[in-house]
C-alpha cells in the first residue's frame, strides 16, 4: 500500500475514533451499549499484557495456516489429477458445483457429529472454505496458460514434472494468488464464526472464543477489543501481506489477471 494511502486511512480512523468518543461523551448512550474507546483500549492492553490474547491469536492463526496449507496440497493434487483424466475432471466439477456455494457454517451440525466440536472440526470448516475457491482458480489458471508456453517446454526437452514446476506453476500464479485471497477471506470468517459456536474446544481457544467469552462475562469493551484485533489482522493480511506478494510478483511481471 502506498504511503499516502496509509496516511489517508489513519486520518479516517482517527476521525471515526473522535466521532465515537464524542458520541460516548454526550452520555446519550449507556456505556453498556457503547463503551468508550479508552475502556476498549484498556481492555485490549490488559488482554495482551496477560498474554491470553496473544496465545489466542496464535491459536487462531496456527489453525488457519494449517488449514490453508492442507487445502493447498489437496487442491494441487485435485487439479493435477484433473489435468490427466477427463472423467475425474467432470466428477471434480460436479463436486465443486455442490460444495463451493455451501457456507462452511451450514455444515456445522454434521461436522460436530462426525468429528466432534474440537480443533478438527474447525480445521475441517476452514479447509472447506479454502479448498473450493482455490481449486477453481488453479483450474482456471492452468486452462488459461498460453499454448505456446507448453510448446516451449517441449522444445527445450523438459519432462512433465519440469514443465509443471518451471512453467505451469508460475504461469498460473496470478490465479493461484486470487484463489488464495478469496480462500483467506473465507477461512478467516469461517474460523471466527466456528470458534464462537464451538467454544474453547482446545485449551485456551482462539479469537472467536475470546469474543464469546467476553460476551459471556458481559465485558463489552473486551468484545470490542476482540473485534479490533480481528480488524487489524484482516487489514495486515489483506493490505500488507497479499499486497506485497502481489507487488513482488504479478505486478512486477505485468501478469495481473
Amino acid at each position: 500500500m502506498k504511503n499516502n494511502k496509509i496516511i489517508e486511512r489513519i486520518i479516517w480512523i482517527l476521525l471515526l475514533a473522535i466521532v465515537w468518543e464524542l458520541v460516548v461523551l454526550t452520555g446519550r448512550f449507556s456505556t453498556l451499549i457503547l463503551p468508550s474507546l479508552r475502556s476498549i483500549l484498556h481492555s485490549l492492553y490488559l488482554s495482551i499484557s496477560r498474554g491470553d490474547l496473544l496465545a489466542q491469536i496464535y491459536f487462531s492463526m496456527s489453525i488457519i495456516i494449517q488449514g490453508i496449507i492442507i487445502s493447498l496440497i489437496i487442491a494441487m493434487v485435485l487439479v493435477f489429477l484433473s489435468l490427466f483424466s477427463k472423467v475425474f475432471t467432470s466428477l471434480l466439477e460436479t463436486i465443486i458445483a455442490i460444495a463451493h456455494p455451501l457456507p462452511g457454517i451450514a455444515l456445522l451440525p454434521l461436522v460436530i457429529l462426525w468429528m466432534g466440536a474440537g480443533r478438527k472440526a474447525i480445521l475441517f470448516i476452514i479447509i472447506h472454505s479454502v479448498l473450493w475457491p482455490l481449486v477453481l482458480n488453479l483450474k482456471t489458471g492452468f486452462q488459461s496458460i498460453p499454448e505456446v508456453y507448453k510448446l516451449i517446454g517441449k522444445n527445450y526437452e523438459l519432462n512433465k514434472l519440469q514443465i509443471m514446476i518451471k512453467i505451469l506453476t508460475p504461469a498460473s500464479f496470478p490465479y493461484f494468488l486470487a484463489g488464495m485471497k478469496i480462500g483467506w477471506a473465507r477461512a478467516w470468517r469461517a474460523l471466527i464464526s466456528a470458534e464462537m459456536l464451538f467454544g474453547a474446544a482446545n485449551s485456551i481457544g482462539g479469537l472467536g472464543w475470546f469474543i464469546f467469552e467476553k460476551r459471556s462475562f458481559f465485558d463489552l469493551p473486551g468484545v470490542f477489543a476482540g473485534i479490533i484485533v480481528i480488524v487489524i489482522i484482516g487489514i495486515l493480511i489483506e493490505d500488507f501481506v497479499f499486497q506485497s506478494i502481489e507487488n513482488h510478483t504479478i505486478k512486477k511481471w505485468g501478469m495481473s489477471t
Binding site: P146, V148, Y149, I152, I167, P170, A171, F173, T249, W253, G254, M255
Partner: peptide, 9 residues
C-alpha cells in the same frame, strides 16, 4: 509469432 513466448515472470 506470439509476443508472449517469453516468460513474463
Amino acid at each position: 509469432q506470439e509476443f508472449d513466448q517469453l516468460f513474463p515472470w
